[in-house]
Design a protein around this nucleic acid. Structure first.
Length: 269
DNA sequence: ACACACTCCTGAATGC
DNA sequence: TGCATTCAGGAGTGTG
């Protein structure tokens, strides 16, 4: 499932092929994604790409006269390919470039989105999102202030984009393991010191995963077609009944808000 | 404001 | 073997 490190991996992969180049046209094979692909994208002709940015789990392509907002959903990925290539069943969108390449969007579950925005600052998709976890705006003070009045399990809070952007199920479990904090603890039970440890753990896990090209569970691929390598460094996610890499205790699974949470009952308190 | 459940989707895994 | 059921979850929307 693409979370911040996977989306950032994607951004890093496509940026050199897009930035400063021109999208000649867009070939849409299936416009039925989470929402219908915006018509501005369908009709797009010969637009230069000024920059390729990321906010939370959204990719933002800055064009001359507006922005393409891309979300990879659960199973989306973008790959750089030579043009032309016959589209397979789950290849929904191709950005045809003026450099002989294309960027191909593949998404079996079609939970992703391709939307247009004239003004990214006013986009209702982005305007409520909290601080980027790798920025200085995400710090001990911010997190502790958000935690201290909430009885929700800390794990649930970490996947709330208003608290911190871009963290999903994988990195919530992994960050809490690194921090040594049990995921089911009420957020308000964390001390200032806990919040500080958690902030540092989140930054460390996300940076390490970006360095390894993200986590590939099923569908995610880097833009060069290779899977991400962080899966080999997961401590708890997807490791139910496997031995903890640090202490050998069996990893346990619980549900928070109908989502799986993995933890080590000995390493986390 | 808050904290939930519901919903979209497909493919892999599981059950009988 | 084959068909039906369950599970995976990002995040907007709806409910109490």
């Amino acid at each position: 499932m693409p979370e911040l490190p996977e989306v950032e991996t994607c951004r890093l992969g496509i940026e050199p092929w897009l930035s400063g180049h021109t999208i000649i046209r867009v070939e849409v094979h299936n416009a039925r994604l989470r929402w219908p692909v915006d018509k501005e994208i369908l009709l797009l002709k010969k637009k230069q790409v000024l920059s390729v940015q990321r906010r939370a789990k959204y990719l933002l392509l800055e064009l001359n006269e507006g922005w393409i907002i891309i979300h990879l959903g659960m199973s989306g990925c973008l790959r750089v390919m030579l043009y032309p290539q016959f589209p397979n069943k789950h290849d929904h969108i191709d950005l045809i470039l003026n450099n002989g390449f294309m960027i191909r969007y593949t998404d079996p579950r079609r939970f992703g989105a391709w939307l247009w925005s004239d003004n990214i600052q006013k986009s209702s998709l982005l305007d409520h999102i909290g601080p980027e976890p790798l920025s200085d705006n995400f710090n001990n003070r911010w997190l502790y202030e958000k935690l201290r009045n909430k009885r929700t399990p800390i794990k649930t809070l970490l996947t709330d984009n208003k608290i911190v952007a871009g963290i999903g199920n994988i990195y919530a479990s992994e960050s809490l393991f690194i921090a040594g904090i049990l995921p089911g603890r009420a957020a308000s039970s964390l001390s200032e010191k806990d919040a500080e440890t958690l902030v540092q753990s989140i930054k460390k896990v996300l940076l390490r995963s970006i360095h390894k090209g993200g986590t590939t569970l099923r569908n995610f691929l880097q833009s060069n077609g290779n899977p991400g390598n962080f899966i080999h460094e997961l401590h708890v996610y997807g490791r139910k009944n496997k031995k903890c890499r640090l202490c050998g205790t069996l990893i346990q699974i619980v549900k928070h808000k109908q989502r799986s949470t993995f933890f080590c009952p000995k390493c986390q308190h």
